[in-house]
Design a protein around this nucleic acid. Structure first.
Lengths: 124, 124
DNA sequence: CAACTATATCGACAAGTGTAGATTTATGAG
DNA sequence: CTCATAAATCTACACTTGTCGATATAGTTG
């Protein structure tokens, strides 16, 4: 399933919050960008039509939605295709960028080193 | 400057090849996807209009183009915004994915470790 | 030089995307 | 029970994107 940029942004809310109404989602979104309720609701409608979220309950007129797809099912392919598109599938240039251009703290580095240690053991 | 997915794909050619004509670009592209010359030429026209490439020379009727923007000027923001969109700006989940889901060779791991060593020294 | 052919140029179109106004309607408050 | 209001529903529109065909034209070749 392909999600547009904005759809993904809204979807993230549902991956964090189990239940969310359109007005609530709108409240969250406008913390970052200035859009009307209608706009957010349209995105929610499209997500529903795509089967990315589904109605889970209702309180008064207000409909609550919940994620109907796993975050990983969307993100994994997204990452792979991103690496492919931007780096021709090579991970090294990406690591390079990550380590050198993004602000890594010492903790981040330690975290990564630990990941690598684990990975090395698995490879044996 | 924002590039569409296909525009980026074509742009990659110009970052590898200093000079490229539309027919040549087309030849390259059809190695991966089945599109007509017209389609590729349209993308090239749009890239030119955007100022991403420019005409560098001409041989007969054939126009040669070259990149007018640096690869990094496009890729760096692309990576940052990707991390933000998909991981809320957190690099760790991305590292997690990279180390565990993408196929890393021992060499890749060694490479990354070296990167990290260097980085650590820089931080001192 | 005339015809052929490869390129360039131009216009077009459907689908997807971000955006939002207008309209309907179910509820909760009085 | 009526009414105000919030939420849902519906419709719309401009812009981007991928896609290409038709047409014009400049070189190349016999």
């Amino acid at each position: 399933m392909r999600l547009s940029e904005f759809e993904l942004e809204v979807m993230q809310l549902f991956w964090v919050c189990a239940q969310l109404s359109a007005p609530e989602a709108h409240q969250e979104i406008i913390k970052n960008k200035d859009v009307t309720y209608s706009t957010v609701k349209t995105i929610i409608d499209r997500l529903e039509k795509k089967g990315a979220i589904k109605r889970t309950s209702q309180k008064g007129r207000t409909i609550f939605y919940g994620a109907a797809i796993q975050s990983d099912d969307i993100k994994q392919p997204l990452i792979s295709s991103f690496i492919k598109k931007v780096f021709g599938g090579e991970t090294r240039p990406l690591f390079n960028h990550l380590v050198n251009e993004e602000k890594l703290s010492r903790d981040d580095i330690a975290y990564l080193e630990e990941l690598l240690e684990k990975k090395k053991k698995e490879l044996d």
